[in-house]
Design a protein around this nucleic acid. Structure first.
Lengths: 127, 127
DNA sequence: CTCGTAACGCAAGCAATTTGCGATAGGAGC
DNA sequence: GCTCCTATCGCAAATTGCTTGCGTTACGAG
């Protein structure tokens, strides 16, 4: 039968699809529980495993802020996070001047993955 | 009286100072225990807190490989890690084409920290 | 409407950290 | 040296966050 369309899945998917900021499982659970209070954390946990396996969401790791997930429709990118308000802006490798090519020729390593996380203060919070 | 020069501190410091690869607390504990078998993990744990507070060591976070510490005498840099053998090579912002300036002008964010972790395969392990 | 099973909720299990506390041992002062 | 104060240590227990086992619920194919 494979994947079923349940209430938790529907609500969680909608939240992940529309929220521009990567969410921790705890946050996602809270958000889902607003609409479906009885939802268990373990359900959210297993759902995230499933969605990640299916390629629907991507895992993002932040130093202090732990593991988070975001909807995976956009292409490869990184984030800059505002330490005050949590706002996030996406950046791609070109924005960052990042080039696997250059790393490879400079180190002899072939590059598999890279993760770049930047923390700062957004324009609004600077005032 | 302040900081004491104890055996654990001396041995652990020496290991951290000379090892070119960031170490997990578990690894550091193992290495210290080779020379001082009775050493407790909690001692290593608290020592790392102290050394980090004193600015002697820096915390490095790796996706899969967890929290690690390295001696902090070198200037700001990042790492590329071989997924097979664990070998590490340091890279600075110029190597990576990274410029806080550019990020700031492109996003309006002022940049506080950034962390870049790259995983790949070193030249040796590619054969 | 029936029935097999994907998903669920709950509670327990783990592993990695952190913390409390009495014992030990640097090292300052005599 | 020898004393004494207290930074550190070792051990065991407590947290915390993440996983997993299991009986129950509720999709949705037939």
């Amino acid at each position: 039968m494979s994947v079923r369309d349940t209430r938790v899945t529907r609500i969680a998917t909608e939240i992940l699809r529309t929220d521009p900021t990567p969410l921790s499982l705890r946050e996602l659970h809270d958000r889902v529980a607003e609409q479906l209070p009885a939802t268990a954390f373990s359900t959210i946990y297993r759902l995230s495993e499933r969605l990640e396996r299916e390629g629907k969401i991507t895992r993002v790791d932040w130093r202090e802020r732990g593991s988070r997930f975001e909807w995976a429709d956009r292409q490869h990118h990184h984030h800059i996070v505002c330490g005050d308000c949590g706002q996030t802006v996406d950046l791609d490798d070109d924005d960052l001047g990042f080039s696997e090519r250059r790393i490879q020729s400079r180190t002899g390593f072939s590059v598999k993955h890279h993760s770049i996380e930047i923390e700062g203060t957004c324009a609004d919070c600077q005032r």
